[in-house]
Simulated scan of single mutants.
Amino acid sequence: MSNRISSFAPVISKTSKILILGSVPGVKSLEMQQYYAHPQNQFWRIIFELLGKDFSGDYETRIETIRKNNIALWDVIDTCEREGSLDTKIRNEEHNDITKILNDHPSISVIFCNGQKSFKNLKKILGEESEIPVFVLPSTSPLHTISFDKKLKEWEIIKHFYEET
């Protein structure tokens, strides 16, 4: 397999308090060079709903919105081999340096994993016991077929940490 792909740089600031970790960008995201670019991925819709903001399709507005709300965004996997967008097709992954980003940004107080793959890989990096609370949330991918309302309800846990910021 020679389809080696790479994740994007983190979206983070010195005031970030919440870190949301995906696995690795899908085909559409890589093509657009944007986090969660697939039009059926519900990530941005969920985030705007949780923040009580009017939804925007503009990527720069999306990034500015999470930055202003002290939310950081990154992927657990730095590079891997994968055909298509399925996490189950990921092979030979190399991880991002999550420990370094946490050390460099001590304001981060909680991590949310967007799906099981990012959670399982994060556990490989941080071990079973993390000093920072880690929550696994249902994937926002269109391939994870539970309803938007069900995903939103589970993602609402972020509001408990957001309200503390």
Rank of each mutant, 00 (worst) to 15 (best):
Arg67Glu: 12
Pro39Ala: 08
Asp75Val: 01
Ile47Pro: 09
Ile71Met: 13
Phe55Trp: 04
Tyr35Ser: 03
Glu31Pro: 07
Leu50Val: 01
Thr65Pro: 02
Trp44Asn: 05
Thr88Cys: 02
Ile66Tyr: 11
Asp78Ser: 12
Asn70Arg: 12
Trp74Arg: 03
Lys68Tyr: 07
Asn70Leu: 12
Gln42Ile: 11
Thr61Gly: 05
Ala72Gly: 04
Glu83Asn: 15
Glu31Val: 10
Gly26Cys: 07
Met32Arg: 03
Gln33Cys: 11
Asp78Cys: 09
Thr79Pro: 06
Ile90Tyr: 10
Gln42Ala: 10
Asn41Gln: 04
Tyr35Asp: 08
Phe43Leu: 06
Pro39Asp: 10
Lys68Val: 10
Arg45Lys: 08
Asn69Pro: 02
Phe55Ser: 05
Pro25Gly: 05
Gly84Asn: 11
Arg82Met: 04
Ile47Gly: 14
Glu31Thr: 11
Leu30Val: 03
Gln34Pro: 04
Asp75Lys: 00
Leu51Arg: 09
Gly84Phe: 04
His38Val: 11
Thr79Tyr: 12
Ser85His: 08
Asp87Cys: 06
Leu50Gln: 03
Asn70Met: 04
Glu94Lys: 08
Thr88Gly: 02
Glu31Cys: 09
Asp78Asn: 12
Arg62Phe: 07
Ser29Val: 02
Phe43Lys: 00
Leu73Ala: 08
Leu86Trp: 06
Thr79Ser: 14
Glu83Leu: 02
Ser85Pro: 04
Asp58Trp: 03
Gly52Phe: 09
Ala37Val: 08
Val24Cys: 10
Gly57Lys: 11
Tyr59Gly: 00
Phe43Asp: 00
Thr79Ile: 12
His95Leu: 13
Leu30Ala: 05
Tyr35Lys: 09
Asp75Phe: 03
Asp87Thr: 14
Ile47Met: 12
Ala37Arg: 01
Gln33Asp: 12
Lys68Asn: 14
Tyr35Val: 04
Glu83Lys: 03
Glu93Ser: 09
Ala37Phe: 03
Ile77Trp: 10
His95Ile: 09
Glu60Gln: 01
Thr65Glu: 07
Gln42Gly: 00
Cys80Pro: 07
Gly26Pro: 01
Trp44Lys: 05
Gln33Thr: 10
Arg62Thr: 02
Ile63Ala: 04
Tyr35Gly: 13
Ser85Phe: 02
Glu81His: 13
Leu86Phe: 06
Gly84Asp: 01
Phe55Lys: 06
Asp87Val: 02
Lys28Met: 14
Glu81Ala: 03
Trp44Met: 15
Lys68Gly: 09
Ile77His: 11
Trp44His: 02
Ile77Leu: 10
Asp54Phe: 06
Thr65Ala: 04
Ile47Ala: 02
Asn92Lys: 11
Ser85Ala: 03
Pro25Ser: 14
Ser56Val: 05
Thr61His: 10
Ile90Val: 15
Tyr36Cys: 11
Glu64Gln: 15
Asp58Val: 13
Asn41Ala: 08
His38Gly: 05
Ala37Gln: 00
Ile46Val: 15
Ile46Trp: 12
Lys89Ala: 15
Glu94Ser: 10
Val24Gln: 05
Lys53Gly: 00
Thr61Tyr: 02
Asp54Val: 15
Ile71Asp: 03
Ser56Ala: 10
Cys80Ile: 01
Leu51Thr: 10
Val27Arg: 11
Asn41Trp: 13
Phe43Val: 01
